[in-house]
């Protein structure tokens, strides 16, 4: 039994994959999630991912007037990470993630929740939208809606969710299987 709760938590922390060594792209240790390694897939993925991420940001911003929005944007962005995992395996996934999923989720929730709650501080109802007008050199007059922060929060959360799920149901399971296999071999005396 733990003598000091701070020193020995009842259970260890979250998955430690996030601290895994950051593998190099196309390095030899990369193992893909499905089937044999496909160089073509990896290369295509490598090229597509930045484009997908840019498209996701476009969707995020465009949602104001066209189909899109935080959800769609977030889903598209997470497709990029899924693709990276499918092509490069779990180490590759770990290398490509900007932060631990719980942190992404927490930040997203803070951003959205904060945007929702901020008007309360000014005596306005919850979620009241505020618009700022700017004059920017290149873009001219810009309307910045506080709803955008809200949407960014949504975007982050969707990305965080998909990352968690891929990490848990994809990478984690894969790792476990390897462990089991290794353990099984070790047991044979």
């Amino acid at each position: 039994m733990a003598q000091d709760d701070e020193r020995v938590p009842a259970v260890p922390g979250p998955p430690d994959d996030w601290e895994a060594p950051r593998e190099r792209w196309l390095s030899t240790v990369v193992r893909p999630a499905f089937g044999p390694r496909s160089m073509l897939l990896e290369v295509v993925a490598r090229m597509l991912i930045p484009a997908i991420l840019v498209f996701s940001v476009y969707l995020l911003v465009a949602g104001h007037n066209r189909p899109g929005g935080g959800f769609a944007g977030g889903l598209v962005a997470s497709m990029a990470f899924v693709l990276r995992y499918v092509a490069g395996g779990r180490y590759e996934l770990a290398a490509g993630i900007p932060a631990r999923p719980p942190v992404i989720l927490a930040l997203g929730l803070l951003l959205s929740g904060g945007t929702a709650g901020a008007p309360l501080l000014f005596g306005e109802p919850i979620l009241r939208t505020h618009t700022w007008h700017f004059e920017l050199p290149v873009f001219g007059e810009v309307h910045l809606l506080s709803a955008l922060f809200f949407e960014i929060g949504v975007y982050l959360i969707v990305v965080g969710l998909v990352l968690s799920v891929v990490a848990a149901l994809g990478a984690r399971m894969e790792a476990e299987e390897e462990e089991t296999r290794a353990w099984g071999e070790g047991e044979v005396r």
């Binding site: 719980p102 989720l105 927490a106 930040l107 929730l109 803070l110 904060g114």
Partner: peptide, 8 residues
């Protein structure tokens, strides 16, 4: 908000 903070 508390949930977000404790998660962080």
């Amino acid at each position: 908000l508390g949930a977000a903070v404790t998660l962080l």
